[in-house]
């Protein structure tokens, strides 16, 4: 299992970094977000920013949320890559070997999680360039990354489950377009939930993006760390992984 998983994971990573255009866009895309969206509120009175976001620099508030959103969007790649392998017949090549199906599923999940995580240092660097100060807190940063990783694994597992049985490339796209935005806006990744209506507050409470954003914010804004955030993400990640394991045994098809 480990060997097959490693071989397939290595493939995912190599395919990513050998594609120059993909690497370029992966670097530029998070910068775009922080540059255009992060600065959209820079003219607001400092008192408003302090009161609403608990920081005078919106980029500092956005950065942890944006990293969570990145995991959400790159999570979709796991499913697209399954479709790709089915369309080019590569899945057949995998399935006529005795390699466990769980290894195939996990390699996709870890591959897209890696893609997301690679953007973390880039975005943090861009944040620093926009005047965000991050207190030196190695444990906090470790927890932050761990949280993002579990979020990524959970999200990409979810998207992979959708595409186990089909080779249709439209479905994951429309599903992602439909689900990603509500997930993003109903979490605290972009705005705090203080002004949300009651039902959106409820949604944000069960939204994994909220929890990974909370961890990052505790690090960046230097507030109290709540371990329940990690616990919630762990549960989310394990539930999705279990779902994926069950689904790939039953449903993973060659085309």
């Amino acid at each position: 299992m480990i060997r097959e998983l490693w071989a397939l994971y290595e493939r995912e990573v190599k395919k990513t970094y050998r594609n120059v255009a993909v690497v370029f866009i992966m670097v530029v895309q998070p910068i775009m977000w922080l540059v255009f969206f992060g600065n959209s509120l820079s003219g607001s009175p400092s008192s408003f920013l302090q009161g609403f976001f608990r920081t005078s620099n919106y980029v500092a508030f956005l950065l942890p949320g944006q990293l969570s959103t990145t995991m959400l969007f790159t999570g979709m790649f796991g499913s697209m890559s399954i479709i790709q392998d089915k369309r080019f017949g590569y899945m057949k090549r995998l399935l006529v070997t005795k390699a466990p199906r769980e290894a195939i599923f996990l390699s996709k999940v870890l591959g897209s999680t890696t893609r997301g995580l690679i953007q973390a240092p880039i975005m943090i660097a861009v944040g620093l360039a926009f005047g965000v100060t991050i207190p030196f807190n190695p444990l906090g940063i470790f927890e932050w990354i761990l949280g993002l990783m579990m979020l990524g694994i959970g999200i990409s597992s979810l998207y992979s489950i959708i595409t186990m049985k089909s080779a249709d490339w439209q479905t994951p796209n429309v599903v992602a377009n439909m689900v990603n935005l509500p997930l993003m806006f109903s979490s605290t990744s972009i705005f705090p939930s203080t002004l949300f209506p009651w039902w959106m507050k409820g949604l944000s409470e069960v939204n994994p993006l909220t929890y990974s954003s909370n961890i990052g914010r505790a690090v960046v804004l230097g507030s109290q760390f709540n371990p329940m955030n990690l616990v919630f993400l762990l549960v989310f990640c394990l539930v999705m992984l279990t779902g994926g394991f069950l689904a790939c045994r039953k449903w993973l098809t060659a085309e």
Binding site: R3, E4, W6, A7, R11, K14, K15, R18, L94, T97
Partner: peptide, 18 residues
């Protein structure tokens, strides 16, 4: 896999076949 070399393709095959 077009993005991989001949040897890398062989390596994946070897790993999958154990």
């Amino acid at each position: 896999d077009d993005d991989l070399t001949a040897m890398e393709n062989l390596k994946i095959q070897a790993s999958l076949q154990g």
